[in-house]
Simulated assay, not measured.
Amino acid sequence: MPDGFTSAEERAAFIAALPKAELHLHIEGSLEPELMFELAQRNKVAIPFASVEDVRAAYAFSNLQDFLDIYYQGMGVLHSERDFYDLTAAYLTRAHADAVRHVEIFFDPQGHTDRGVAFGTVIAGITRALDDARTSYGMTSKLIMCFLRHLSEAEAEKTLDEALPFLDRIDGVGLDSSEVGHPPAKFERVFGRARSLGLKIVAHAGEEGPPAYVHEALDLLKVHRIDHGNRSLEDPALIARLAAEGMTLTVCPLSNLKLCVVNDITAHPLKTMLDAGLKATINSDDPSYFGGYVNANYQAVADALDLSKDDIVTLARNSFAGSFLNETGRAKHLAAIDAYAAAA
């Protein structure tokens, strides 16, 4: 075993209760098959699956687009404020069980408004669940609205217009969906407008897209975080820049495996990122589809890459240091991690 643990079981127990934040979670991607069936029945929505087992069998993706096709299909069962509440509350319960103290979740309003669901319905359900998690679990949260990059910048502008009455509950904007062929440059103006409104900026870049997309996210969108960023490792100058700027990368190991970004979890670049001085974090992305919530992601790379106690603590510390909490909030959580590590 690496320094700090005497057994794999000891490491697993350490991960299980380690305070952590999750910074890369698509709330629609936490829709478990059981809830999908329940909501389909509640809303009288036909879905092309006869059973929960059929849904799980469909989760055999070879690339990002294969996943997105079923992801958008599953989203179609979400209609009412109650649906969005139930979806979000179910994720937050799972996150709490994984010792997650703070979440920064993505939602895709265009995937709902384009099928006639009001923007206000979506955000009311999500934020009510976030408020309840603060009361029940002491869990803090930030909400990040994503633009779908396979759609146009004009459509993103329209979505930002729809968000204006709700900016007291929206903390940032992001960019997700099909990466290849839709570079960050496509959305430079709408992200500039979002920045002028005081919103934090993040973007998916360097998952399937090239290192050039990461450069564009930094230089044109002026992001505060990079979501994924794996392919940054192909560009030594970019690695040096990300390290020098202290740019947080929200890495999603089981997602990378499921979408064939890596062929084997033992080949995951997370340890390489840490060794290069990059502020990598561990996140679950779309846990229902990719086979694991945040602790499962920690455990998978800890086992595959034989991570040390120091590595694991660094990843947890990075998750709070890279969050959009204020300095006092970050310091509180960092102190909790240090106390936990010292006592373990």
Rank of each mutant, 00 (worst) to 15 (best):
residue 148 L to M: 13
residue 152 S to T: 06
residue 153 E to Y: 02
residue 154 A to N: 10
residue 155 E to N: 11
residue 155 E to C: 09
residue 157 E to M: 12
residue 158 K to S: 14
residue 158 K to H: 14
residue 159 T to K: 05
residue 159 T to G: 07
residue 160 L to R: 01
residue 160 L to S: 02
residue 161 D to A: 15
residue 163 A to Y: 00
residue 163 A to L: 02
residue 164 L to Y: 07
residue 164 L to I: 08
residue 165 P to C: 04
residue 165 P to S: 04
residue 166 F to A: 05
residue 167 L to I: 00
residue 167 L to E: 05
residue 167 L to M: 03
residue 168 D to W: 04
residue 169 R to H: 10
residue 170 I to K: 09
residue 172 G to F: 00
residue 173 V to H: 05
residue 176 D to N: 13
residue 176 D to Q: 08
residue 177 S to A: 15
residue 177 S to D: 15
residue 177 S to W: 12
residue 178 S to F: 10
residue 178 S to D: 12
residue 178 S to N: 14
residue 178 S to L: 14
residue 178 S to A: 14
residue 179 E to G: 06
residue 180 V to E: 15
residue 181 G to D: 10
residue 181 G to A: 11
residue 182 H to K: 09
residue 182 H to P: 05
residue 182 H to Y: 14
residue 182 H to L: 09
residue 182 H to F: 15
residue 183 P to H: 08
residue 184 P to C: 12
residue 186 K to T: 13
residue 186 K to H: 14
residue 187 F to E: 12
residue 187 F to W: 08
residue 189 R to Q: 14
residue 190 V to P: 12
residue 191 F to A: 02
residue 191 F to Q: 02
residue 192 G to Y: 03
residue 192 G to T: 00
residue 193 R to K: 15
residue 193 R to M: 09
residue 194 A to N: 00
residue 194 A to E: 01
residue 195 R to Q: 08
residue 195 R to H: 10
residue 196 S to R: 14
residue 196 S to W: 07
residue 197 L to H: 03
residue 197 L to M: 05
residue 199 L to M: 05
residue 200 K to W: 09
residue 203 A to I: 01
residue 204 H to M: 02
residue 204 H to L: 00
residue 205 A to C: 10
residue 205 A to Y: 04
residue 207 E to L: 12
residue 207 E to M: 11
residue 208 E to S: 15
residue 209 G to A: 13
residue 211 P to V: 03
residue 211 P to R: 03
residue 211 P to Q: 07
residue 211 P to S: 06
residue 215 H to R: 14
residue 215 H to M: 03
residue 215 H to V: 07
residue 216 E to H: 09
residue 218 L to K: 08
residue 218 L to S: 07
residue 220 L to A: 10
residue 222 K to I: 00
residue 223 V to F: 00
residue 224 H to L: 05
residue 226 I to T: 07
residue 228 H to F: 06
residue 229 G to A: 08
residue 229 G to R: 05
residue 229 G to T: 04
residue 230 N to G: 12
residue 231 R to M: 12
residue 231 R to D: 12
residue 231 R to S: 15
residue 232 S to Y: 03
residue 232 S to I: 04
residue 233 L to V: 01
residue 234 E to N: 13
residue 236 P to H: 06
residue 237 A to Y: 06
residue 239 I to F: 09
residue 239 I to G: 07
residue 239 I to Q: 08
residue 240 A to P: 11
residue 240 A to N: 11
residue 240 A to E: 15
residue 241 R to L: 11
residue 242 L to I: 01
residue 242 L to G: 06
residue 242 L to Y: 03
residue 243 A to L: 04
residue 243 A to K: 11
residue 244 A to M: 07
residue 245 E to R: 06
residue 245 E to G: 01
residue 245 E to Y: 00
residue 245 E to M: 04
